[in-house]
């Protein structure tokens, strides 16, 4: 579905990504691991069209069973530790605003229902400023899924979520995956990543150091690999 060829992104002398090749198949769930600065966020931002590559190409191809190509503006949901929510608007107003911009027709009931589904029922009409960090992240999940995107780009999506919030997000992601949506998720937690994904990629200094289907190795084996390629020296 996405063909990445020779993708590089430089910031002066520092290369965040170097000559990365990666093919993403439709319906895949890729967990992206790596140290801080390994290029995970940069890759996701480039895929989302939030930033321009220094060289190389990202090719979005046709969706299976559909005549249209994947359009990074309308078919991608992007969820990061930044919530993209307006603190002075209520949950309803935030979602309504984004729905308008995304050409989705949603009435009040739909919005209430969606907010309820992320566990915020009863607080729809409160300004987001009053929410805790975890509640904001829950609403951000609802925002990212607003248009039921074909592909999800997730940059440390579990940031700030409590146990039940994490469970909720895991459920939502597993459900999206089961419905054939493609997910790419940057994550530090080896266990959660292993649990959700069906393909494990470790980035090291802007290149894929390790790329394997989950079925080929056990969690313990993966942990070993992870310690080798993806942990900071200070962590170890």
């Amino acid at each position: 579905m996405i063909q990445i060829r020779g993708l590089s992104k430089y910031f002066g002398r520092f290369s965040a990504l170097r000559n990365l090749d990666l093919a993403v198949r439709q319906g895949e769930f890729i967990a992206l691991f790596g140290r801080n600065g390994a290029g995970k966020s940069t890759l996701l931002r480039l895929l989302a069209g939030l930033s321009r590559p220094s060289s190389g190409t990202i090719q979005y191809s046709r969706l299976a069973g559909s005549p249209k190509r994947l359009n990074p503006r309308s078919d991608i949901g992007y969820l990061s530790h930044l919530t993209s929510l307006y603190l002075d608007l209520t949950a309803m107003e935030n979602l309504r605003f984004y729905a308008q911009l995304m050409d989705i027709q949603l009435d009040e009931e739909d919005l209430v229902q969606r907010i309820g589904r992320v566990g915020l029922a009863g607080r729809e009409r409160e300004p987001v400023r009053n929410y805790s960090r975890g509640m904001q992240q829950r609403l951000a999940i609802a925002r990212a899924f607003l248009h039921d995107p074909e592909m999800l780009l997730l940059d440390e999506p579990f940031t700030g979520l409590d146990q039940s919030g994490s469970d909720l997000l895991k459920r939502v992601l597993a459900d999206a995956h089961a419905r054939g949506k493609t997910c790419i998720m940057a994550i530090h937690d080896a266990q959660v990543g292993y649990e959700l994904a069906d393909r494990l990629v470790i980035l090291e200094r802007g290149a894929a150091a390790f790329d394997t289907p989950k079925s080929s190795l056990s969690l313990a084996e993966f942990r070993e690999q992870y310690m080798k390629n993806a942990t900071d020296l200070t962590d170890a």
Binding site: Y10, G12, R13, F14, S15, R18, G37, R205
Partner: peptide, 12 residues
């Protein structure tokens, strides 16, 4: 020079 330094990875 930037390119060379990048290749050499001196900045990291």
């Amino acid at each position: 020079l930037e390119l060379i330094e990048r290749e050499a990875g001196t900045a990291r």
